[in-house]
């Protein structure tokens, strides 16, 4: 059952990155869209993500529940030492979630829209940034559970070059995913072009920030290069990601939207795999050199058994229903 639970955890994190990420990305794209095109972008976006919006964010809740039920030590270590970035991310989630709904359901469309839009865009950016910062901090080895002063214990664990580089990289990936997603959601050739352009810009940004992540890793003495290039799976994943990048640019120019989405999702998955495979099942790397591993902190057997059962049962109920939701609201393309 342990394996089932860990699989679900990884799946939930991945899906949150892909689906929730595309959702943050929509706000980020809007942030970098010229004023005259914004309302159009907004409309396309609403139609595209409105129906699946709530569902996309459930993956975060699933992941966090699996953590606190199955791996309480990991959950509480994160909560204590990454309290500040987690709180900021939560503020971002609250702000963008409510602004997104408010701007659509406000019965009177007036100056308030300006406020909702502002909040939505900036908080999308902040949320994605901090999501990345948190992910980066977990593997950065800066978290110090033996610290005695405030700064080392609660700040330097996440406020470092590597974490910030991962944060920016995440922002770019989210924007990229969203742009790819939106290309398929609009019918007008002009808009399609615009989103293609955006996807290209975000892709370039991702490559640049990706390079920054490596540089920061060198600087902070994080063996990222070893992880990626010395393990065969890491290497394979990064090769596949690069190959799909080439293919992606080609398809982008051709405007093949359906395959593009799958490819973009695949690419991001490969990147995550490359970064995380080598130190799996270690979830948090500590300054002391130790690591907190999923396998070693796993909760009591009965708990894991019933958690696994609940997840399996849940997915039997959820997945067909969810699949139908995506299917039903995406048919307009044909």
């Amino acid at each position: 059952m342990k394996d089932v639970v860990i699989t679900f955890l990884c799946m939930a994190i991945l899906l949150y990155f892909l689906l929730g990420g595309a959702d943050f990305g929509a706000g980020i794209i809007e942030l970098f869209t010229s004023t005259k095109n914004r309302s159009k972008t907004r409309k396309t976006m609403y139609q595209a993500i409105g129906p699946v919006w709530e569902a996309n964010h459930m993956w975060l809740i699933i992941a966090i529940v699996i953590l606190f039920v199955g791996f309480p030590f990991i959950y509480t270590t994160m909560s204590v030492y990454l309290h500040i970035p987690l709180a900021i991310m939560l503020i971002g989630i609250i702000a963008r979630g409510t602004a997104f709904v408010f701007r659509h359901y406000d019965a009177v469309k007036d100056d308030m829209q300006w406020l909702y839009n502002r909040i939505f865009r900036y908080s999308s950016f902040v949320t994605a940034l901090f999501l990345g910062i948190i992910a980066g901090s977990l593997i950065s080895g800066h978290i110090d559970t033996q610290a005695t002063d405030f700064y080392t214990a609660y700040i330097s664990g996440w406020l470092n070059w590597f974490s910030i580089a991962v944060g920016l990289f995440t922002v770019a990936l989210c924007g990229f995913l969203a742009a790819i997603y939106l290309i398929g959601e609009t019918k007008e050739a002009h808009d399609k072009k615009r989103f293609i352009k955006k996807a290209e810009v975000m892709n370039v940004a991702a490559v640049v920030f990706g390079a920054m992540v490596f540089i920061a890793a060198q600087r902070d003495k994080i063996p990222l290069i070893d992880w990626v290039f010395k393990s065969s799976v890491g290497l394979l994943a990064i090769v596949l990601a690069s190959l799909s990048l080439v293919l992606l640019w080609y398809l982008l120019i051709k405007g093949k939207t359906k395959v593009l989405r799958i490819l973009a999702g695949f690419q991001v998955t490969m990147i995550l795999l490359a970064i995380s495979y080598a130190h799996f099942p270690n979830f948090i790397r500590l300054k002391s050199g130790d690591a907190i591993s999923l396998l070693e902190t796993v909760g009591p057997e009965k708990t894991i058994y019933s958690l696994g059962l609940a997840l399996l049962l849940g997915s039997v109920l959820i997945l067909p229903f969810l699949g139908y939701l995506f299917y039903k609201f995406q048919k307009k393309e044909e």
């Binding site: 959950y75 609940a310 959820i318």
Partner: peptide
């Protein structure tokens, strides 16, 4: 967490649905 987590994990399913 591991003791009273059961309702939370089922709740996750319910929320999702």
């Amino acid at each position: 967490g591991p003791i009273f987590g059961m309702p939370f994990s089922l709740e996750g399913t319910a929320f999702f649905i």
